[in-house]
């Protein structure tokens, strides 16, 4: 391998999240040392993933098939859809194991800075999923908005809730408040006031 190839590898690795030029250099050296056991299988896996991974045509999740494993799973409750901003958020909810319904990935939030308006979000596909069947039954009974508690995230949430207002489904959102392990003394004012607003019976 020529020097320029090593430099190119390091430059590409340095563009990955969590890696700077120094750590990219370490990763590159490690891969070169373990050429047969690490580098070549990794290259093959990257090639394979680049060719096979695509967005699910129903929910926008990533999978190797046209319809993702979550949308294919008959055990999951198809009448509840959890709306997430990005695939990473979907994976986070899946890690919790607390949700057994299906998902819909928006692909971001409304953002003037990024030039992302309602048309750039995957909202039309969500509306299609809520359309009543031929016999008039509603395929979905609840849509959960699992969006960031930021100005952009909540603006997007309100926009979707308003779009769904006449769709005949219940629209809910994640609770805002004290995180598990959170000490009140260290919480910011916004989280505390949201927690107080959303207080429930003890």
């Amino acid at each position: 391998m020529a020097i320029s190839d090593i430099e190119r590898l390091i430059q590409l690795l340095a563009r990955l999240p969590g890696l700077g030029p120094r750590s990219a250099r370490r990763v590159a050296l490690q891969m070169i040392k373990k050429r047969e056991t690490l580098m070549l299988p990794l290259a093959a896996a990257l090639q394979q993933a680049a060719e096979s991974i695509r967005a699910c045509t129903i929910c926008g999740n990533l999978d190797t098939q046209e319809t993702c494993a979550i949308c294919r799973d008959p055990e999951r409750d198809a009448t509840i859809i959890c709306v997430a901003e990005e695939v990473g958020d979907l994976w986070a909810i899946e890690r919790s194991g607390a949700f057994k319904g299906r998902y819909h990935v928006l692909g971001g939030t409304l953002s003037a800075l990024d030039g992302r308006g309602p048309d750039q979000l995957n909202v039309a596909a969500l509306m299609d999923r809520l359309r009543p069947a031929d016999d008039g039954t509603m395929p979905v009974r609840e849509v959960i908005l699992a969006l960031s508690v930021t100005v952009d995230g909540q603006t997007t949430g309100h926009y979707i809730a308003e779009r769904l207002a006449g769709a005949g489904v219940s629209v809910t959102r994640l609770a805002h408040g004290v995180p598990v392990g959170g000490e009140l003394d260290y919480l910011d004012d916004g989280t505390l006031s949201a927690a107080l607003k959303a207080r429930g019976p003890a």
């Binding site: 508690v149 100005v151 909540q154 603006t155 309100h158 809730a161 308003e162 805002h176 910011d188 004012d189 916004g190 989280t191 006031s193 949201a194 607003k197």
Partner: peptide, 13 residues
């Protein structure tokens, strides 16, 4: 934290 005060209120947000 003025933003947190209005996150739940679409018109004010």
């Amino acid at each position: 934290s003025y933003a947190a005060r209005v996150l739940d209120d679409p018109p004010r947000l």
